[in-house]
C-alpha cells in the first residue's frame, strides 16, 4: 500500500495519506511532511524527541501533530525521518520521533512550509484503511 501521495494545488500542496490503522496513518503523515521539506535519504536518526499533542477531533489532531513537527523544524532546525506513535485516541497522541538537526552544506531543504491548514481537512476510515487529506501553505 502507498504511504502517501502529493496532490496539486495551484498555490500550495496537498497530501493524501494512507495507513492500515490510525497509528500508521499519523506516522505516514509525519514522513510525508518531511519528504516535502527535505531529502529524507540525507537524514540520520541521531536524535529523538518526544511529541505529545491534542485536538478536539481526529482532524484537528492531524493538524496539531503536523503543526508541532513543523514548529520543531522551524525553531530547532530539526529534520525528522522516523515516527513512532505510541498512543493515539480521538483527541490526543503520544509519539517519539527520530532524526537530526539541519546542517548547512550537508542537508538541502527542498521546500519551506509555512503552515498546516484546516482547509478541506479530512481524516476518514474506509473499508480496510484510513485516509487523510491535508493542505499545506507553502
Amino acid at each position: 500500500m502507498k504511504k502517501y501521495e502529493f496532490i496539486d494545488h495551484t498555490a500550495d500542496l496537498g497530501l493524501e495519506i494512507y495507513g492500515k490503522d490510525l497509528k500508521e496513518l499519523f506516522e505516514n503523515a509525519g514522513e510525508a511532511l518531511f519528504e516535502v521539506i527535505c531529502d529524507l535519504s540525507q537524514v540520520a536518526e541521531s536524535m529523538k524527541k518526544r511529541v505529545v499533542v491534542d485536538g478536539e477531533d481526529l482532524e484537528q489532531l492531524m493538524v496539531t501533530w503536523l503543526g508541532e513537527l513543523l514548529y520543531l523544524h522551524d525553531v530547532q532546525g530539526s529534520l525528522f525521518k522516523r515516527f513512532e506513535i505510541e498512543e493515539i485516541g480521538d483527541k490526543s497522541l503520544k509519539a517519539t520521533v527520530y532524526g537530526e538537526k539541519f546542517k548547512a552544506g550537508h542537508h538541502t531543504v527542498k521546500t519551506e512550509i509555512k503552515a498546516v491548514t484546516y482547509h478541506q481537512i479530512k481524516v476518514r476510515q474506509e473499508e480496510d484503511r484510513w485516509t487523510s487529506r491535508v493542505i499545506l501553505d507553502l
Binding site: E56, E59, Q60, T64, G67, Y118, H119, Q120
Partner: peptide
C-alpha cells in the same frame, strides 16, 4: 494557527455556520 484553533471553538459557541473549517 493558534487563533484558528481558538476560533474553531468560538464559531460553534456563537452559532456561526461555516461552509469550510478554515
Amino acid at each position: 494557527d493558534d487563533y484558528i484553533r481558538i476560533m474553531l471553538q468560538s464559531s460553534a459557541k456563537y452559532g456561526i455556520e461555516l461552509p469550510d473549517k478554515q
